[in-house]
Nucleic acid binder design. Structure first.
Lengths: 233, 233
DNA sequence: CGGAAAACTTGCGCTCGCGCAAAGTGAGAT
DNA sequence: ATCTCACTTTGCGCGAGCGCAAGTTTTCCG
């Protein structure tokens, strides 16, 4: 195993506020792992042996119901920490994490969390801050699911993805990883049929452009209008 | 202000693992406050000046949309910590907390959190553990909202309330605080009309008994059936 | 004790979005 | 090169549950 360099993680949100030598100390027990697109990084209900920081790619976090229905809980972007069951007093993962494209991640043994977080308080603080914002995100989604129509929810979901992972192209801002209608449906509590219809309608209006597994938002402002008001403009 | 006694908080989940003298130390900067039913303990978006532990009563946590729609995020029971924006790196409260009945709570200045949690690591660990389970609860609700019909969601919500706050009576298990059809609707993303219809139908089948602002579950098993399967038995 | 507000019930019609079905299309594999 | 599978589109009908409306009951308060 090659020795990992501190510059790998310098500047990433979880490690903000750490000194160079501290970074190296944190990094020492980590190993770097590649995951091919579509492979599981960890499985729901499995023993939480590791926690991770994503160095490259995108990860989809999915919860599966006893009946086999899937719901996408969130997408993880570069630099984010995930799989932190240990930090929240759990011994198993509450969801499955799947590489949405080829990924590279650092992995630490969960057992090291108490030591690491107490030795490097900023690490703990940074982590709990992201937990806080994820809790808020989750509540925001509950509110959306409770109060909005499908069209608004899909619009909100696209806007969030574009904001989180958007990559500028000549036609607009493209979501930076392969995403299907089915995926969008699982994020919004809709069916792939309805999502497909919405995207077609929006393409008609030059608000989005989509190809197989790719979505580009051309007119974010119009999409925001769709997201806000429930009248049928 | 009367000096508070350590026995007040001994045995409460957030303070598990603390010694007697530590409890007193933790308690020193706290003050005890009463809240009349219906009054706000803190408001969404307000500066997070304090965090709280509920000693008596129940608290409703509500998020309000820009359009004025309300969604009940959760209920807080005796012994739970809440309003911990500070622990999650926030400076404002993400939701409003309202006393669902007359309540007594302890309040600490938010500014003390870093010191308290580092001086008493169990306090931090206990708190983050509850944050973890709340994050999970929120995701569970997202999954429910995505995959279940209204009837199942209402059944699940009642079962959860009964489990969390149930008080045994001769007729069954009663939810321990005043709760309206509107409240249940705001927990489940339904309308009060639909909730009313469901409760009427279930009363017909001797599954629940409800009076104004009170709900008793007589037959939890039948209610679990309603919660699980989407066929119309 | 009486009046009013708050909470609850019930009926009716309509619409959003699902369920089902079937055909079309792009992309990777051999 | 073409085959095949995964992804996508589109049509049609139906039903859950909302929106609106009107009426009833309970509790609170003067």
């Amino acid at each position: 195993m090659p020795k990992l360099d501190a510059s790998l993680i310098a500047g990433l949100p979880p490690f903000e506020g750490l000194q160079r030598d501290e970074l190296e100390e944190v990094l020492a027990p980590a190993r770097s792992i590649r995951f091919a697109a579509g492979t599981a990084i960890f499985d729901q209900e499995a023993e939480a042996e590791s926690f991770f920081v994503l160095l490259d790619g995108y990860v989809r976090v999915v919860r599966t119901t006893p009946e086999g229905q899937q719901v996408i809980v969130r997408y993880i972007s570069e630099g984010e920490i995930f799989g932190i069951a240990a930090a929240l007093g759990r011994t198993t993962y509450p969801a499955t994490a799947v590489a949405a494209m080829d990924c590279v991640a650092l992995a630490w043994p969960s057992a090291l969390w108490p030591e690491l977080s107490s030795r490097f308080p900023s690490l703990g603080a940074n982590t709990y801050k992201t937990v806080g914002s994820r809790l808020q995100d989750a509540h925001t989604r509950v509110v959306e699911m409770s109060t909005e129509q499908v069209e608004q929810r899909v619009a909100h979901a696209l806007l969030r993805l574009v904001k989180q992972t958007g990559r500028k192209t000549e036609e607009g801002i493209e979501i930076d990883f392969p995403i299907t209608r089915q995926d969008i449906a699982e994020m919004t509590g809709a069916t792939l049929h309805t999502v497909s219809r919405l995207l077609s309608a929006w393409e008609e209006q030059n608000i989005v452009k989509s190809r197989r597994k790719h979505v580009t938002v051309c007119n974010p402002h119009s999409l925001m209008l769709k997201a806000e008001s429930r009248d049928k403009t």
